[in-house]
Simulated scan of single mutants.
Amino acid sequence: MIYLDNAATTRPKPPGVAAAVTAAMDAYGNSGRGAHDEALAASRGIYAVRRRLADLFGGPGADRVAFTPNSTMALNIAISGLLGPADHVISTDWEHNSVLRPLYRLREQGAAVDFVPADRRGQLDYGAFSRLLRPNTRAVVCTHGSNLTGDLTDIEWIGDFCHRHGLLFILDASQTAGMVPIHMARQHIDVVCFTGHKSLLGPQGTGGLCVGEGVDIRPFAVGGTGVQSFSETQPAEYPTRLEAGTLNSHGIAGLGAALEYLRTVGAETVRTREEALARRFYQAVRGIPGVTVYGDFSAEERAPIVTLNIGDYDSAEVSDQLAERFGIATRPGAHCAPRLHRALGTAEQGAVRFSWGWANTEAETDAAAEAVRVLATEE
């Protein structure tokens, strides 16, 4: 199988990730639940990964990294813990349902939500940020990279906009964490929500938030923490205030090994290779009659994603043909991005997404392009 579904989850994981998970299962106790060697080993291991993530995101420190099972939970925590019924929020048409549904729920509670529109080519109207601004605007919540087209938002511009107007900036870095540089302090980002199993190359079941100084998020879940057990409320200190219950210390150990791989090989090296493969594929398929490619490939930076349709074929049918006849794994359908599909005019057809990872090759990329050519010829 040629695996080109890395935007869903990277596969295979780098050397050492699975071994780190297994080693933690053999050695770790429960972090914060004792002073014996096994519990302390878990605490030390988790702290080391917090510190690496804080450094990666330009965050204020290890204590401001809180772990969750995924970026969806991180976004729910940030949105529900910072915003309320009296607030107005600006988001975009690029968003995944992990942003949209928490915002829609917030809207049902009385908040106002507006979306920066995308045009028929999927490009955002940045002038709309200023036009949508209200006296009670509290935050901008947006993705760093579209999981549908691979286009990147200009977080430098958005961060400056938020800073000028005193707004919170909550960034969904699901598709970019570990691949595209993020620096919270320089880019005026208040919260980075990330997942560990995509460009960070770690196991599923890992993710979290990196929270800026002075940002106080109300706890989403409350419960056991191993500290302040007689308090009737969740401890106020980070990261405990956002981490009720036992952490996935085994998965976090695997994430630590993935971060070490990225440090050793170089995240920029991995990113350059993945993007080169995606552009190679784009150049090969863009001129095939009947093929429509979505996204802006004139941009200098983008995620290693190419999404397309062949004629009026349903995207699920094309993806099935790619898997059954050519052994190529892709992602069809709506990609949990309904607003952008409506903007592109693909709400009914969906689209077929190809996405590259650190282990893909030029030969695999060329084989995928040839498969698209064959299917388009048969259309």
Rank of each mutant, 00 (worst) to 15 (best):
P15M: 09
H335A: 10
L4F: 05
A41N: 06
Y3A: 01
R101K: 15
P235A: 10
E156Y: 12
C210Q: 11
A334C: 11
R353N: 07
E362G: 11
N6K: 04
G207K: 05
A343E: 01
S43I: 08
A368M: 04
T365S: 10
Y104Q: 15
T307I: 04
L75D: 04
G45K: 07
V285D: 04
E38D: 14
P102D: 06
A367M: 08
A278D: 03
S146G: 01
G122L: 06
F57E: 03
D312H: 13
S174D: 14
G226W: 07
L375F: 00
V180E: 10
L340P: 02
R186H: 12
A257T: 02
R164P: 11
D63L: 10
D5C: 13
E275M: 12
D87Y: 00
A62M: 03
L171D: 00
N360H: 01
L167I: 07
A351P: 00
F169D: 01
E108K: 13
V180D: 05
L167R: 08
L255I: 02
V211R: 06
G214M: 05
T330L: 08
S315F: 02
A257F: 03
T9A: 15
F57H: 09
Y238F: 13
P304S: 09
L322A: 04
E301Y: 09
I2T: 11
G223T: 08
C210E: 11
Y238Q: 11
G333L: 05
A112E: 15
A78N: 03
A185D: 14
A363Q: 13
V222I: 14
A343D: 04
R279H: 07
I305G: 04
G122N: 10
D160M: 12
A86N: 14
K198P: 01
P338N: 05
I2M: 02
L255E: 00
A24P: 00
R218S: 13
T330H: 06
Y47N: 13
R325N: 09
Y104L: 15
V141Y: 08
W157V: 11
V285N: 02
E237C: 13
G333Q: 05
E268L: 05
D26L: 15
V318R: 08
Y28L: 03
V374D: 10
Q349L: 12
P12I: 03
R339M: 14
P85H: 10
T330G: 01
V21G: 00
A48W: 02
G122Y: 06
K13C: 09
R64F: 10
A177F: 05
I77W: 07
R33W: 12
G145S: 10
R339N: 13
P117W: 01
L56Q: 10
N248D: 12
S319A: 14
T272I: 08
G207S: 08
G287S: 15
R339V: 11
A54F: 00
I252P: 02
H144A: 14
V285S: 04
L103G: 08
P69N: 06
N97I: 14
H183V: 10
P69L: 07
A118G: 07
A86Q: 14
D314F: 14
G122P: 08
L152C: 13
G226R: 07
S298F: 11
A376Y: 03
S199E: 12
A329C: 12
